[in-house]
Amino acid sequence: MNANLLAQSALSGLFSGGLYALLGLGLSLSWRFLRIINLSHFAMIFLAAYLTYQCTAIWKINPYLVPLFLIPLFFVVAALQQLAIIRFGIDEFGSIVATFGVTIVVEALLQLIWSADFLRLETDHLKGSMVLGSLLVPWADAFMFMCAVTTCVGAWGLLRFTYIGKALRANVENPAIASIFGVQSRRLSLLVAGSAGGLAAFGGVFIALLFALTPSQMYSWFGVIFATVIMGGLGSPLGVLVAGLLVGVSESFAMALVAPSWAPIVPFTLMVSLLTLRPGRI
């Protein structure tokens, strides 16, 4: 086995893992702090990806500017969805059905507006690769990876060191006592849901930059992102990042060392192994 091939594959896996973490972070936070298994997170990601396509390819807006208005927009949409969830008293398991319904509606909407055909955002931004020794590092993937790492570390810092982070953790541990100390559960839940929506928008921008789009593609991300979130530990941004990288690199090694067809088995094998060894993970 060629060492360069292995290193290049590891790099490719790191980039995939970064994307898994970025896409999984919002899901992980809402699962942990809201007790909502938000399947519509994937729909939001793809809605953001299509809007990025629309803004960049059709309206010729610079792709770097797109997150500046997509993130606030999705923050509001996700917060409104959370208001509806609170209003109807949807519980953790009910949220699976409700948000899956939203996902189907969004998929139909995407198909209605942009058709089922493939769309590929052709842009000159972040084209090409830089050469690092014998390795080639694609600019777009490297930029996405940096954003993913920064976002996960930033989220960890917010949860660990700020009042909001402490309030969130306290609210999950014991809402009654937290409220005595002035923690406003409802506001916090809207903040978490909105942040998850913003993260979905951010992830969607990279999906549009890196992949061809078709509405049903959102379902193909379910498995690997759920595996990443569960392995990372709910509500743990650094855990999600590490799990994403582990999954991405393992998939890449499976492709490079064994056969590409083994790659889909990897995240689930890792997840089952971890749940067997550490059953109290969720």
């Binding site: 594959s9 490719s12 896996g13 998939e251 492709m255 889909p264």
Partner: peptide
């Protein structure tokens, strides 16, 4: 359904 063609 393979998404990452990097190693291939």
């Amino acid at each position: 359904g393979t998404r990452d063609f990097g190693p291939i």
